[in-house]
Amino acid sequence: MENDSLPVVLSPETQRYSKVCEILQRNNNDRSRLIPILQQVQEEYHYLPEEVLTFIATPLRLRPAEVYGVATFYSHFALQPKGKYTFRLCDGTACHVRRSTAILDALYKHLELSEAKSTTDDMLFTVETVSCLGACGLAPVMLVNEKVYGQVTPEKAVEIVNTIMAEEKAA
């Protein structure tokens, strides 16, 4: 039966979901590897969907409440989907004394967001603060997805948003 198999064509869509089992097996269903497992799940889904957390609890022999408790303890884990572009503003001391708060306020205002509502309705932008990125020499520092911006000003931050908006519209 194996020999008459058709050429393997995996669409990204179908791949995405089968990843959960793969992640669990890669980590030997080892409950002490819960945090790496959650990190890998988040890498796959960009957040931790409730049903996935429930799903992984059984093979790890944990209760969903405990998985949820761990997931909510660490600020890296997101239980809500995030926007396509995540702005992470460093809130370390060096950035703070160089007025990073003003940048955050400018982004909030420009995107009509707040601490309670951190993602835009069109799921394009998420704005959040992050603990020190350790790039204090460039303070204030901002991450947009993986890209680091140094010596950011409120104006520069808004400009970055506008550039992305324009690109998205064009696309």
Partner: peptide
């Protein structure tokens, strides 16, 4: 090599150990 998940308190050694063990870093 284990990556933290965003909790300052895990710099405290017993919290760090809890985190490696897959628990809340308390």
């Amino acid at each position: 090599v284990m990556e933290g998940a965003g909790a300052f308190v895990c710099g405290e050694e017993t919290a760090l150990i809890a985190s490696i063990e897959g628990k809340r870093g308390m």
